[in-house]
C-alpha cells in the first residue's frame, strides 16, 4: 500500500503555495516573475521521496517551487524568498528561480543545470560517495545543447545521474511536438542511456517507474532518463493567458489532474484534514513572510 495520503499532503502543499503566489502577485507582494507548477506537483514529490539527503544532490529548473518544497517543505522560507525577505532560502536575493537549500540548487538558464548535475555526479563517482544526482529538465530544455551534451557526458563517463524530464508539451508557448525532431526516447536510447517513460495521469505507475529508475542508477552507477508526460494546469509564468492551448486540451488536462486522482484514493476525512492543515500552514507562512524584513546588500 502506497502512502497516498502523505503524497497528497505534499502535493497539496505545493498547489496551495502556487495559488497563494498567484494571489501574491496580484496583490503586489511579489516582484519579478514566477513559474507555477500546478498540475506537475506530483513529479518532484515522488522524485524527492527517492533521494537520500545525506549523499544525494538535486539540481532543478526555473519551474522550481515544487522541487524546493518537495526537498525542504518550508513554505515560510520559500514565501520569504519570493518576497525578497531575509528569511528566504537565499535571503531574498535569489527570488523565484534562484534557490539553493541543502543539497538542492537551481538557476534560471534552461538546461544549464544539467551539466552542473553531471559534474556533481562525476565528483560522487570520484569520491565513491555512493550518492546520485537528480536532475530536473523540461521538454523545451531537452533541446538545449546543454542537455544534449550532458547526456553524452553522463553516458560516456557512466556517472550516477537520473534525469527527470517533465514533459508538459510546451516551452512557454512553443509546442514541443512541433519543434522537436524525432522523439526523446529514441534520442536518449541512442546514447545508451536507460530510458523510462511515465505519466502523471497514472501516479501509481509513476511511483513504480521512479523507484525502478533510482534503483537502476544506484545499482548500475549509470545514468537513467525518465520522461514524465504531464500537463501544466496554469500559465507558463505569471502573465500567461495560455492562448496557445485549445479549450479542449485545457479541459482534458483539468479532468486528468493528478491531485483529483489522489483524492479518490484517500478517505474524505483524510482529504479534509490535510486540506485544513495545509491551508492554515500556507496562510501562516505568507502572513509571517509579509512581516519579515528585507536585506540590502549588507547580508555579506
Amino acid at each position: 500500500m502506497k502512502d497516498y495520503a502523505g503524497i497528497y499532503r505534499e502535493c497539496y502543499r505545493i498547489r496551495c503555495f502556487e495559488k497563494k503566489v498567484e494571489q501574491g502577485f496580484s496583490k503586489g507582494l511579489m516582484r519579478g516573475t514566477t513559474h507555477g507548477c500546478i498540475g506537475q506537483e506530483v513529479i518532484p514529490v515522488i522524485a524527492m521521496r527517492e533521494i537520500n539527503r545525506e549523499i544525494d544532490r538535486a539540481v532543478g529548473t526555473h519551474r522550481c517551487h515544487g522541487q524546493v518544497l518537495a526537498y525542504e517543505p518550508d513554505t515560510y522560507r520559500l514565501a520569504c524568498e519570493m518576497m525578497g525577505k531575509r528569511d528566504g532560502f537565499v535571503k531574498g536575493m535569489g527570488g523565484s528561480q534562484h534557490i539553493k537549500t541543502g543539497g538542492y540548487l537551481t538557476n534560471g538558464v534552461t538546461g544549464g543545470m544539467a551539466v552542473i548535475g553531471c559534474g556533481m555526479a562525476m565528483a560522487m563517482q570520484k569520491k565513491k560517495s555512493g550518492g546520485l544526482v537528480l536532475a530536473f529538465i523540461g521538454d523545451g530544455g531537452f533541446n538545449e545543447g546543454y542537455v544534449q551534451e550532458s547526456l553524452n557526458l553522463a553516458s560516456v563517463y557512466s556517472v550516477p545521474i537520473i534525469y527527470i524530464c517533465e514533459n508538459n508539451r510546451y516551452a512557454m508557448s512553443t509546442p514541443t511536438t512541433q519543434y522537436s525532431a524525432g522523439d526523446f526516447e529514441r534520442r536518449v536510447r541512442a546514447l545508451d542511456i536507460h530510458y523510462i517513460q511515465s505519466t502523471t495521469r497514472n501516479v501509481d505507475e509513476m511511483i513504480d517507474a521512479f523507484k525502478s529508475g533510482f534503483r537502476f542508477v544506484r545499482e548500475q552507477s549509470r545514468p537513467c532518463f525518465i520522461e514524465v508526460m504531464t500537463a501544466r494546469l496554469c500559465g507558463h509564468s505569471k502573465s500567461d493567458e495560455m492562448k496557445y492551448m485549445s479549450e479542449a486540451e485545457i479541459r482534458d488536462n483539468q479532468t486528468k489532474d493528478p491531485l483529483k486522482w489522489l483524492e479518490g484514493l484517500i478517505s474524505d476525512t483524510d482529504r479534509d484534514d490535510i486540506r485544513t492543515e495545509i491551508e492554515k500552514e500556507i496562510d501562516d507562512a505568507f502572513r509571517r513572510a509579509e512581516e519579515c524584513d528585507e536585506y540590502g546588500l549588507e547580508r555579506k
Partner: peptide, 13 residues
C-alpha cells in the same frame, strides 16, 4: 559548455 559546467559541478562538491 558541458565540461566547463561539469567542472563547476565538481567544484560545488
Amino acid at each position: 559548455q558541458a565540461f566547463t559546467g561539469m567542472g563547476i559541478g565538481m567544484a560545488l562538491e
